[in-house]
């Protein structure tokens, strides 16, 4: 049904690098699952301290794109092209993926707290990196839980199992956990899809506040959420970025017809 669409019919906004700090950028990205090409034509620049939303129908390659950004696809896919992080191409064999993933953190669709205490969830990665000073760890726990806006709910139960938390609280603890290793980019793949409307609202508020310190890229299937929350929006379809622009423009005056169809609910 979409085959009639001319594949070169795209609008991708480009920043002027002289004026804007670009935290991440993809160039000539191609992602293959086995031999099938799942993602291509997505040269996107992500501006520092903004929220960029990735929208598009299910199966359009949003997750594939997002997971390439911190090399989480290494085991399952072949990723070709460049992924620049502060100007350094991190899609090279020589790059240490663990350091990349520390700096480019990720939060997932379903809250996935570890079978540890709340405290243990947050300190775990630090301890694995050799930080055992209780004072430092205490501080990190408090700071990140406050950043993720769950400190008040859990501060009296830090040593309770994180598996006993509600979905919304668990997802925030997962955000705090990601913040604990001091990333500067935060990737979120439909982080609110398992949450109720109230928790979703709170989560969005939290992300707005986190924007001051982090560059945030969020996949969402919820167009209202993208419109409410993000500064920039990428619209994906059939494994390609179709339109990338200021969120307001994507939703009010899309340049591409396909985008218009999607944001006005005509397909997807």
């Amino acid at each position: 049904m979409l085959n009639s669409n001319n594949p070169t019919d795209r609008f991708i906004y480009h920043f002027n690098p002289e004026e804007t700090t670009i935290t991440m950028q993809t160039k000539n990205l191609e992602v293959y699952y086995g031999k099938t090409l799942a993602m291509q034509h997505a040269d996107i620049q992500f501006k520092q301290n903004t929220i960029t939303a990735l929208i598009g129908p299910s199966g359009s390659g949003k997750s594939t794109f997002l997971r390439s950004l911190n090399r989480m696809n290494d085991d399952v896919a072949t990723v070709k092209g460049q992924i620049l992080y502060q100007g350094v191409d991190i899609n090279q064999p020589k790059i240490d993926v663990y350091e990349v993933r520390r700096r480019i953190g990720m939060v997932f669709q379903r809250p996935n707290p570890f079978a540890k205490s709340i405290y243990g969830n947050i300190t775990f990665a630090l301890e694995r990196r050799g930080i055992h000073d209780k004072r430092v760890l205490d501080e990190v726990v408090e700071k990140t839980l406050k950043q993720a806006a769950v400190w008040d709910q859990v501060k009296d139960n830090l040593h309770k199992s994180a598996l006993s938390l509600s979905g919304g609280q668990a997802q925030r603890v997962c955000i705090a956990r990601a913040l604990a290793v001091q990333p500067d980019v935060l990737l979120l793949d439909e982080p609110a899809s398992a949450l109720d409307p109230v928790s979703t609202q709170q989560l969005e508020q939290t992300l707005r506040e986190l924007k001051q310190d982090y560059t945030i890229i969020i996949v969402t299937h919820n167009m209202q959420q993208a419109a409410r929350l993000s500064d920039y929006t990428v619209f994906f379809n059939l494994g390609e970025a179709i339109e990338y622009n200021k969120t307001r423009k994507v939703f009010t005056r899309p340049k591409i017809e396909l985008t218009d169809d999607y944001v006005s609910g005509n397909f997807g």
């Binding site: 350094v88 020589k94 790059i95 240490d96 663990y98 990349v100 694995r128 990196r129 050799g130």
Partner: peptide
């Protein structure tokens, strides 16, 4: 980023 980490 290219230094081989302890994790690796």
């Amino acid at each position: 980023l290219m230094k081989k980490s302890k994790t690796a």
